Simulated scan of single mutants.
Amino acid sequence: MKILLCCSAGMSTSLLVSKMEASAKKQGIDCEIWAVGSTEVNNHLQEADVLLLGPQVRFLLAKLKKEGEKRGIPVDSINPMHYGLCNGEEVLKHAINLIKGE
């Protein structure tokens, strides 16, 4: 499972990536999670199973959903509260549910 996160520069999400990885490890879930800036996201979409957008780039949701649909990749925004609290467990759960089509 490959989870791509997008924020404005790719850096503010690094702590969230760490928290998601820790949650996945604790649950025995094998996944790759990485974050990129909004200008690079199209270069990474083909590698991902799901794309989640940070609150600061939520305005790109409609455009990136179209790109995701072309490639069969679900795209959604991260709950701002989960993002702000760096709740890796909830964001990971959301990503997994999107991949499963729930």
Results as ranks from 00 to 15, higher is better:
1 M>V: 13
1 M>N: 11
5 L>K: 02
6 C>P: 08
6 C>H: 07
7 C>Y: 01
7 C>L: 09
7 C>E: 03
7 C>I: 11
8 S>K: 07
10 G>L: 06
14 S>R: 09
14 S>G: 00
17 V>Y: 12
18 S>L: 05
19 K>H: 14
19 K>W: 04
20 M>V: 08
20 M>E: 07
22 A>P: 01
22 A>G: 12
24 A>D: 07
24 A>T: 05
25 K>Y: 15
25 K>V: 13
25 K>E: 15
26 K>T: 04
26 K>W: 05
27 Q>I: 02
28 G>H: 08
30 D>Y: 06
30 D>G: 12
31 C>I: 06
32 E>G: 07
32 E>N: 11
32 E>D: 15
33 I>T: 12
33 I>E: 12
34 W>A: 02
35 A>T: 06
35 A>Q: 01
37 G>Y: 07
39 T>M: 10
40 E>H: 05
42 N>C: 10
43 N>L: 10
43 N>Q: 09
43 N>S: 10
44 H>A: 08
44 H>G: 02
45 L>T: 08
46 Q>H: 14
47 E>G: 02
47 E>W: 00
47 E>Y: 03
49 D>L: 11
51 L>A: 11
51 L>G: 06
53 L>Q: 02
54 G>F: 14
54 G>T: 11
54 G>V: 11
55 P>S: 13
55 P>C: 12
56 Q>E: 12
57 V>H: 00
59 F>G: 02
59 F>V: 07
61 L>Q: 12
65 K>F: 05
65 K>E: 15
65 K>A: 13
65 K>T: 15
66 K>L: 15
67 E>M: 07
68 G>D: 07
68 G>R: 05
69 E>W: 00
70 K>Q: 15
71 R>S: 11
72 G>F: 06
72 G>D: 03
75 V>P: 11
75 V>R: 07
76 D>N: 14
78 I>W: 02
78 I>Y: 01
79 N>F: 01
79 N>W: 00
80 P>T: 05
80 P>S: 04
81 M>G: 07
82 H>Y: 14
82 H>P: 00
83 Y>V: 07
84 G>N: 05
86 C>Y: 10
89 E>I: 01
89 E>P: 00
91 V>A: 07
91 V>P: 09
91 V>Y: 10
93 K>N: 10
94 H>E: 09
94 H>Q: 14
94 H>K: 15
94 H>F: 06
95 A>D: 03
98 L>T: 10
99 I>P: 08
99 I>L: 08
100 K>G: 11
102 E>C: 00
